[in-house]
Design a protein around this nucleic acid. Structure first.
Length: 258
DNA sequence: ATGGTAGAAGATCTA
């Protein structure tokens, strides 16, 4: 089965592009972030028409996450057990594939400017995610955590580390939090399958960043040990950034043995 | 030259 994550940067502004990309990437499960719409404003009809089941945690203006699945979804939760959050940044559901898998879709806070309140919130959020991941591991149900982590794991995951290592996305403390998360026993699917340097998932709209390949890798799929055993490949669907009216992020897709 | 781009909201904030 193929599990994808994609920050769409507005469901309303992106709908034609989203429908096209969903057809192209042939995933079974897709986690979406930055819907920028309320739950009721999600385009259920258009998406369901394509055979998707939808679980949505929307919010006006900012944030908003969803899980789309070709398989039925069960036991949807819209918060981590470990954080009371007034921002719609998390959703989790069990995908009833042949072998069921728990899928978490997340939109980690950006954290800029750092230091400051926003960076504190980011660190609090990632700490809550770590605690939540710990409880998922304890439950011994296969799971993946997909989303926009707003974290550049290492210098080779951006085009110029001197630009990013003072940003909330690339600060040493952000990278330490990312490593700590992995050290629970989770695997970065991209790193496990490919791991090449300078493969990006986000390019800013400004200054022709995509044309210059001034990107960063911040969209990730973390897999538990049992899902890692089934992991066979990862693709960054870079093409999506060259479409008309693109999101500034592109999908990342991991393939697992059925 | 204190700039640039996009989206949502609404005359600014977030990324």
């Amino acid at each position: 089965m193929r599990i994808a994550t994609w920050n769409v940067n507005s469901m309303k502004a992106r709908l034609p592009t989203v429908l096209q990309v969903l057809n192209d990437i042939k995933a079974d499960v897709v986690c979406l972030q930055e819907l920028k719409c309320e739950t009721d404003a999600f385009p259920y009809l258009e998406i369901e028409e394509m055979g998707w089941n939808c679980a949505v945690h929307g919010q006006k203006s900012y944030n908003g996450v969803a899980i789309l699945s070709k398989f039925p979804l069960q036991d949807v939760t819209r918060e981590m057990s470990t954080l009371k959050d007034d921002q719609a940044r998390y959703i989790e559901a069990t995908v009833l594939a042949e072998r069921p898998v728990r899928v978490g879709g997340l939109y980690l806070p950006n954290g800029n400017p750092a230091p400051g309140e926003k960076y504190d919130y980011k660190l609090e959020w990632v700490a809550a995610l770590e605690d939540h991941a710990r409880s998922l591991l304890k439950a011994e149900e296969p799971f993946v955590l997909c989303g926009d982590y707003n974290a550049i794991p290492a210098p080779e995951d951006c085009w110029d580390d001197t630009v990013w290592n003072t940003d909330a996305l690339g600060l040493p403390e952000t990278r330490a939090a990312w490593r700590q998360l992995k050290h629970l026993g989770l695997t970065d699917a991209f790193e496990a399958c490919d791991g090449r340097a300078h493969q990006y998932t986000f390019w800013d709209y400004q200054g022709g960043a995509f044309q210059k390949d001034h990107g960063i890798r911040i969209d990730h799929i973390l897999a538990c040990p049992r899902m890692t055993d089934r992991l066979t490949g990862v693709e960054i669907y870079r093409k999506a950034r060259a479409l008309e009216k693109p999101s500034d992020h592109v999908p990342v897709i991991a393939t697992f043995e059925d």
